[in-house]
Design a protein around this nucleic acid. Structure first.
Length: 456
RNA sequence: UCCAGAGUAGCUCAAUGGUAGAGCACGCGGCUGUUAACCGUGGGGUUGUAGGUUCGAGUCCUACCUCUGGAGCCA
């Protein structure tokens, strides 16, 4: 019986009627009948509401006028088969109690609200069907991410959030300081004795652990101070970065593709109720896209070949296609959605457009970079085999005008027992957008931080 | 940061330069084992902000603010 005193999810999944159960939650709507009222109760444990029947005169029913949308209540009664359509079980109340009132100013009324409006009430939107579903899915997929790596003997490493290397090379960084006034006047007086920042990637630190524990991954907050105003960028997001010693680019691509597939399968099998909601109200194509990724084998194509395909496609693109230029979103989407009609991994990019840590190929012109492209989104994963040769890494640093002294510990990995190793990075929110169909990154983060906005 | 669009009731939206409206929500009444119930009725507004044009501005002009979409950067 104890379990039945738990969440509404448990009550609705009951296999038989039960007397004397208690449900707690928030009122979604109330309908008054002759001599009794219907309450729809939701506690966020699942999408569905629990229908409650309260007879006039039942203990606590005198407060029913205050059981308005948004109010928190506790109901005790008997779980019985529902004679009405639309639900299997309902709760016949023997006692009701108002825990917390919600008056008519409660902004989340029982009506369709725009996503833009819901963002302005981020403290209340988890009580809506859509956002309850999004954040239940976010939690389960975070679990699936850990499960994927733990089952493959990866060690979870908590890489630092504050860093003093301002040269991780992945974009503008947020400054962390305890100084007042001119913070650049005397950096040695600062808390860490030098300028400090919020991390833009845990990769370099993860590499050190991979070169000790063989297989590691990070899954944590990441920060970018870029003034990016798009539906795909946030100043604070969660990144997943596996790193594997004794692994080359092929092994890296294998893992990336397996990862995407497994999470799509997990979404399909473990989040069916939410997926149905997303399919209906958010993105009619989401289930088809998941099946597309699950069923179709990934295509692998070198960058040079991808460029040729784009050139010969006869398609007019807004941006030029030339060897040595980065592929634009429109190019990536053409490859995966129209040309291959499959998830696609592009690899071996020109060294000029990629960071110093990527391994130089024997041709001397390309590096072992790879991007995994999926339909609807484009790039979801970027990774590479890392440059493990000491001399070559030093040359890469020189070419990109980076100081070896700033990377002394990173270079040390190549001095002492260096090994081939590889890894990739994945934005957790972008993965969520792909798996749920939600179009704006602000709607898969509980409280989004974007330029000019850090409320709540 | 660049380009485009939008800000009118709590929410979603109407309103030829000429008296600011509807639906939902909320109050009241009615009806009903109802399903975002239904029917009737009532209250609800500094039209994003500041200027300007005009006899008259929600509507036209200028600036700013905010939001949205797209681009760049990227995950």
């Amino acid at each position: 019986m104890a379990a039945l005193h738990g969440l509404i999810r448990g009550l609705l999944n009951a296999t038989e009627a039960h007397e004397g159960v208690t449900a707690r939650g928030w009122v979604r709507t109330r309908r008054e009948g002759k001599g009794f009222s219907f309450l729809e109760l939701n506690d966020g444990s699942c999408l569905a509401n629990l229908q409650v029947i309260v007879d006039d005169g039942a203990p606590g029913s005198e407060a029913l006028p205050d059981f308005q949308t948004g109010a928190s209540v506790e109901v005790t009664g008997d779980l019985v088969a529902s004679p009405g359509k639309g639900q299997r079980w309902e709760l016949r109340a023997t006692r009701v109690a108002l825990l917390g009132q919600a008056d008519s100013e409660y902004p989340l009324q029982k009506k369709g609200h725009s996503l833009e409006f819901l963002r302005t009430i981020a403290h209340l939107r988890p009580r809506s069907n859509l956002f309850g579903a999004v954040f239940r899915v976010r939690s389960r997929l975070a679990y699936a991410v850990h499960r994927f790596f733990q089952e493959r003997d990866f060690v979870h490493v908590h890489t630092p959030i504050i860093t003093t290397s301002d040269c991780e090379g992945a974009g503008e960084m947020f400054r962390v300081t305890t100084l007042k006034g001119d913070i650049d006047a005397k950096p040695s007086a600062d808390f860490f004795g030098k300028p400090a920042f919020l991390t833009v990637s845990g990769q370099l630190e993860a590499e050190t652990f991979a070169c000790a524990l063989s297989r590691v991954y990070t899954f944590g907050p990441t920060f970018r101070a870029e003034n990016s105003n798009t539906s795909r960028h946030a100043a604070e997001f969660w990144m997943i970065e596996p790193e594997m010693a004794f692994c080359d680019l092929a092994g890296d691509m294998d893992l990336a593709e397996e990862f995407i597939k497994e999470l799509a399968v997990y979404m399909r099998e473990q989040c069916g109720e939410e997926l149905a909601l997303f399919e209906r109200f958010v993105d009619k194509e989401v289930r088809r896209r998941l099946d597309f990724v699950i069923e179709r084998p990934f295509q692998r194509v070198p960058y040079s070949e991808a460029v040729e395909i784009l050139r010969r496609s006869g398609r007019k693109f807004d941006y030029p296609i030339e060897p040595g230029l980065n592929l634009q979103s429109e190019h990536e989407r053409f490859l995966t959605e129209e040309h291959f009609k499959a998830p696609t991994t592009v690899f071996n990019y020109p060294r000029e457009i990629k960071p110093f840590y990527m391994r130089l190929n024997d041709d001397g012109r390309t590096v072992t970079a790879m991007d995994v492209l999926v339909p609807g989104i484009g790039e979801v994963i970027g990774g590479s085999q890392r440059e493990e040769r000491l001399d070559q890494l030093r040359e890469n640093l020189r070419r990109q005008q980076l100081s070896e002294a700033d990377y002394w510990w990173y270079v040390d990995l190549r001095r002492f027992g260096t090994v081939p190793h590889a890894g990739f990075g994945l934005g957790f929110e972008r993965l969520l957008m792909f798996l749920t169909g939600v179009a704006n990154i602000r709607d898969v983060i509980p409280f989004a931080r974007t330029p000019g906005s850090a409320d709540f």
